[in-house]
Write a protein that binds this DNA or RNA. Structure first.
Lengths: 374, 374
DNA sequence: TTGTAAGCGTTATCAG
DNA sequence: CTGATAACGCTTACAA
């Protein structure tokens, strides 16, 4: 059935010119002037035959495949992978490129095989993505091809990387709570010692200190980052003498447990207890009641940034001047309904206005702020 | 920096043979007998140089790219995409193939461009995936390349497709509830008229009827498939005269709303109300308290099945005999803690044993059953 | 303004 | 058993 695809030769024949000419007009080669009439004839012929240049042949000749690889440690169990991939493919498509997606499942051998397959296919570059913010060691085979890290940092130099601005996230969370008038805060942090844990705590503490909170007005505890962990930590926090009026949670899943604890203790959210989460896992943050105000992780934007960097490097030749760029991207705060002023506060300070969903590719400037409907 | 990759020519030189011979030994060409010593020399040379055959050149020559495309309507906003992709890439990798992932965002123009890019790259075949079970119309450009549908059906003949077995899902949900001794059931279905809605209702009703339930022992209402929709429907259901003791929800998100309604009405889950969901959206089903018993959608398995079919077609030449295979895959029921026997029931019937997570690629046979820890 | 021919890295045909 | 050599479909000096 699948009759052989139409080639440049057929187009040439159809247009009554040589294949060289076809190539010239179809590629708009700079120095070459081709008679307008000829051009038209060629274009028509190509269109008539439905000619699509064979990318493999082009790549073989030009040493450029317009193809990049996306290597993820896991692609199925987190909702984040999709956003990074989408960011990557959006900018890829704008350069007529397509992306190979492979998932390693954290297995070195699988990773090696996949890298090999990608290399054999002459990918122009590789995006190496982690599902959670961490430091990685770059597989040595990748040394030969432009590579950019997403949601991960590394010490190999010459490798650009992008991660979320965790500190800013912690600050933003604090600002939301402080802005509403809260003065007794708690932070349920991840037990694991990872960049996100350090960064968010640092930012949160800094703002609390700047706001003049005393040491025992800010409790920090750690927990497993799941509902059970959040529940346990929240019970402890909420039954203590100096009960906080607001809790910042390392992530949304953990926050679910805090909701439960609050409910069990008869505390109403947000009236008796305000909560801010992290991640903006839509089905979670938007599914709990009342909706969870949370800090979004900039996965899509990281995908975009990384891919743009990647193409820069691919096009910029071997190595651009100066060290590789790295950046931390700030995620927007998503306002829902889990934050209110404590009863004794009159003026909760101004509430920020809604803004657009995707406006924040930069890492500096004030945090964009978002209010969801519903 | 990136010195030109090593080619077959260099290997030939290094081994002191012709490139033909190198090709012969590296590919183990059937009819060709090469002296064992020569073989060794070649293999060593290849290894020493770190030779990786250029896949582009191979493809150009053999007309086989060992590359497939995965076209999804959206890849970022659902947790399902990742599983289908993983299924696809797992089988692809086992055939030394890699998969291009593209997302159309439901935009025809984007889809067309992407299809074009894939075709230009000579993909051997295409997986066309929908994020929710529906009937699709196949883009005509795909006629020229082997294609298999995932989570979607179509009428174009010759096109294999795989979808979830919705009817079985409805039956399984009913069985769980009926098995626990419930006799007053409700089903909150999707308002949208989609295959999932029809199928699940059919299966659920069938089993209820088989169990001898009277018509008014099974209420079916419809709602938006989000927490708010579930909440509203549940309030209505639970405040009625003939309050059901168990509710089957079209999906897990909707079930979240049912949890809230139950809590507000002072009904305890599962003691006063049993709930079964659908989808097994991990962070939701596993995040609510108590954990939600639910029917999993077989996304991974659908990805696997489709990709195997795809390779069959690719290898089987133009068209295999007979009509294209299609199938409905059953998802396992995931037992958590949202189902119990109503108080008046003595023996809830036997509870099934835990089983393995991936054992169910087939669509027939009893539903595999899974109990999560925690 | 157009065309010839070399070459990108392989595989496959056909001789030696 | 081994090796020239012609494709595969395209781009690009270089000629005409």
């Amino acid at each position: 059935m699948t009759q052989r695809r139409v080639t440049i030769k057929q187009v040439a024949a159809e247009a009554g010119v040589s294949i060289t000419t076809v190539s010239h007009v179809l590629n708009d080669v700079p120095g070459k002037r081709v008679h307008p009439d000829t051009k038209d004839r060629v274009r028509e012929a190509a269109a008539r035959l439905g000619y699509l240049p064979n990318s493999l042949a082009q790549s073989l000749r030009t040493q450029r495949s317009n193809t990049i690889g996306f290597i993820g440690d896991e692609v199925a169990t987190t909702p984040f992978a999709g956003k990074m991939i989408l960011g990557a493919q959006d900018v890829a498509l704008s350069r007529d490129a397509v992306v190979f997606v492979v998932s390693t499942g954290y297995q070195r051998e699988v990773e090696n095989r996949e890298i090999e397959e990608l290399l054999r296919r002459q990918v122009d570059g590789i995006l190496y993505a982690s599902m959670y913010h961490r430091a990685v060691e770059l597989p040595p085979q990748l040394a030969s091809v432009p590579t950019v890290l997403i949601n991960a940092s590394c010490t190999t130099d010459g490798i650009p990387w992008v991660v979320p601005d965790e500190v800013a996230g912690g600050e933003d969370a604090a600002d939301v709570l402080l802005g509403a008038g809260h003065r007794r805060l708690a932070f349920i942090n991840d037990v694991d010692e990872i960049p996100a844990a350090f960064g968010r705590e640092e930012g949160f503490r800094r703002r609390a200190a700047q706001a003049g909170l005393r040491d025992d007005d800010l409790q920090v505890v750690t927990a497993e980052t799941d509902p059970a962990g959040g529940y346990a930590a929240a019970r402890q926090l909420l039954e203590s003498d100096n009960r906080p009026t607001a809790i910042f949670c390392f992530n949304d899943r953990l926050a679910m447990g805090v909701y439960r604890a609050a409910t069990e203790l008869g505390l109403r959210i947000p009236h008796d207890l305000s909560i801010v989460g992290f991640d903006n896992q839509e089905f979670v943050a938007d599914g709990v009641f009342p909706g969870l105000t949370t800090i979004e992780l900039p996965h899509y934007d990281m995908g975009v940034w990384a891919t743009e960097q990647l193409f820069d490097r691919i096009e910029g030749g071997p190595r651009k001047a100066g060290p590789a760029p790295t950046t931390r991207l700030r995620g927007p705060v998503i306002h829902r309904d889990s934050v209110a002023s404590p009863p004794w506060v009159q003026d909760p300070g101004e509430r920020r206005e809604p803004s657009d969903r995707r406006g924040n590719a930069g890492s500096d400037g004030a945090a964009p702020t978002i209010r969801t409907n519903k």
